[in-house]
Simulated assay, not measured.
Amino acid sequence: MFLPLLLFLLSVVMTQQTLTSVDFEVFGNVQGVCFRMYTEEEGRSLGLSGWVKNTRQGSVIGQVQGPADRVSEMKYWLEHVGSPSSRIDRAVFSNQKDISKLELHGFSTRY
């Protein structure tokens, strides 16, 4: 009697994905190598929202929001892949938190 109810509740929980937001900064040779453009493309292909921007110090900063599993994929991409001509020395992630709804819509480059 309780098994159908339990299965129903489990299916509801499984279909509701946890949304996550995380800030990032990527260091290395990441300016002048289309890093922002490729970051936008990767974020969009993963169905994420966010933004990316060059800093005066030569790094790239931004924020990514979306389903936790896809945000994890994007974090891996930012830390290990990047644009074809980039050289990533390190990526720092901060302010990671679960969110109840997306605060950003779409993926853009900020100037």
Rank of each mutant, 00 (worst) to 15 (best):
R70K: 15
Y76V: 01
V60A: 10
V33F: 11
M37D: 12
G82A: 08
G66H: 02
D23S: 08
V13Q: 11
L7P: 06
N54W: 05
N54M: 10
F2S: 15
Q57N: 15
S49A: 15
L104I: 01
Q65R: 04
S49E: 06
S72F: 01
F35G: 14
R90I: 05
W51Y: 10
D69A: 11
V30A: 13
L3A: 14
R36M: 13
M14Y: 07
V64I: 14
P84W: 10
E103V: 05
K75Q: 08
R36T: 14
G32M: 10
L10V: 14
M14H: 04
W51M: 07
G66Q: 00
V71Y: 04
G106F: 00
G32S: 07
E42H: 09
E103N: 10
G28D: 06
Q16K: 08
R70Q: 13
S45V: 09
R36V: 03
M14C: 10
E41H: 00
V71C: 07
V22S: 06
V92I: 05
S86F: 03
P67C: 04
G50E: 09
S108D: 10
T15D: 09
S94A: 01
T109A: 13
D23T: 02
P84S: 15
F27Q: 04
M37F: 01
G106Q: 03
L5H: 09
V52W: 01
V81E: 12
F8T: 12
I61E: 12
S45A: 14
